[in-house]
Simulated assay, not measured.
Amino acid sequence: MGIAFAVWPDGASAQDPEIQISRSACGQGWTDPKAGPQIFNLHNTGAVTSEVDLIDPKSGVIYGEVEGLGTGTTRPMSVTLGNGSYAFRCLPEDSSAIVGPTTTVSGGAERGPGVAAVTQNDLLQPLKVYEAKVTQGLDTLATDVGALKDAVHRGDRGASESTWLTAHLTYERLGAAYDAFGDSDGAINGTTAGLPGGTSDPDFTGFHRLEYGLWHNEDMGSLGGVVDQLASDVQDLRAAFPRSQVDSNDLGLRAHEIVENALQFELTAKTDYGSGTNLATTRANLDGVQTVLDVLRPVLAPRYPQLSGVDSWMQRTETTLDGACKPDGSWTPVSALTAPQRQKINADVSELTERLAPIAAIAEPRRVS
């Protein structure tokens, strides 16, 4: 599906057809239908901002879209059209959808696949399933952090480091729900970014503060307060989550962003405070992405023919990362990777990031009426 952005693409010109967008003149102005690549200049002559889709009027499948077309403005929609019927669908703010006149294109190639719109109703069941999985994950997290708390208070550094990793990875598997966690995410898994005091800043709390203390040989007694606060914050999140709601747009969006963030922060070790477990975190992030893909699969399968390719790259990237886990269960730090190992991991995660990118657009909930 061609998605138009708020820039003028190469080749746009005054000769490209100007399509009127308003309640009274949706889709007017397409007088010379033709197949192949082309640009429509969408001009909002109405009084309110509008979304615009180019659809098959019979099936509703989308072949192009522009969001947030302001009144009085003109923006391009760049598309490649095959043989078939098309119409512009205008979705003005606070108004029902209007479908313009049908135009038939012929004399070109067979039409490529479009995307059937995903509605809020389509996402109700996936969201319900995902929220149930997050609830289970938070239960597991509370248990894991309880074991971590016991180990720290016993003064057992080795057991504390081991249970820290178990608990931290449990949290890292919940990535698509972080926005619903609100301020709790910063308290539980925040870094020193933006903190003037760095690792000594009183607002540096949670997993990474405890990681810093454990792996920098801070006195175990002094870490009791840190782990107590972490346990309290986890319990607060666990109690609050049933009253929260994961945004329907976050499922598809986060499937891509989780891996993108891992590439930016974990594979560069920017979030390493001493444990050297960034590759384990990245692997847990992939588990989180897999959970999202599983709950979205009924929505994605009929809309994304390349989904099997995503599955293949997920398996390939998981296997690559698993190679960094040693027989004793410890993980190779990013800094200890050989050049070929680093290149392989970065290449696989980068490719997976690219293959996940379309899912954000496909699973975005859209108005159709």
Rank of each mutant, 00 (worst) to 15 (best):
Q341E: 14
L141K: 13
A132K: 11
G175T: 02
Q229C: 02
L141E: 01
E364A: 12
Q245S: 07
Q290W: 04
I3P: 06
F88T: 07
D287R: 02
D272L: 00
A4C: 14
A6C: 04
G107M: 03
R355W: 13
L279F: 05
E318A: 13
G276P: 12
G146L: 07
P298V: 15
G2M: 08
T291A: 12
G108K: 14
G137A: 10
P126C: 11
D139L: 10
Y273E: 10
C26Y: 04
R303H: 09
P327G: 07
V368E: 03
V289R: 00
R367Q: 02
G309N: 09
H256M: 00
L195S: 03
G206C: 06
G198I: 13
V234F: 09
S59A: 13
G213L: 08
F265W: 06
G309M: 07
E110Q: 11
R366I: 04
I345R: 04
L352A: 03
V295G: 01
N278V: 00
L321F: 05
T191L: 11
P358L: 05
V79I: 12
D139T: 09
E18N: 04
I3T: 13
N217T: 11
Y304A: 04
A4P: 05
W215A: 10
D53E: 07
L237A: 11
V227E: 01
D287S: 08
E65H: 10
P33S: 08
G186Q: 10
D233H: 08
W30P: 03
G100E: 06
F40K: 03
D56K: 00
A324H: 02
L210M: 08
G309H: 02
S184N: 14
I55L: 10
L293V: 04
D311R: 02
T104K: 15
G36C: 03
R243Y: 04
A269D: 14
I19P: 10
Q28T: 06
A240I: 01
A357E: 12
S59F: 05
F265K: 13
T319A: 14
S350V: 01
R89I: 02
G137C: 00
P305R: 15
S330E: 14
I19T: 01
W313I: 02
D233P: 01
A339P: 00
R75P: 01
N41W: 11
Y304W: 09
V61E: 08
I39C: 09
A269C: 07
S13G: 14
A262W: 11
P17V: 06
D219Q: 12
G206M: 04
M77A: 12
Q245W: 04
L127C: 09
A87M: 12
L141Q: 07
L141N: 10
V99T: 14
K270E: 13
T80I: 12
A301Q: 12
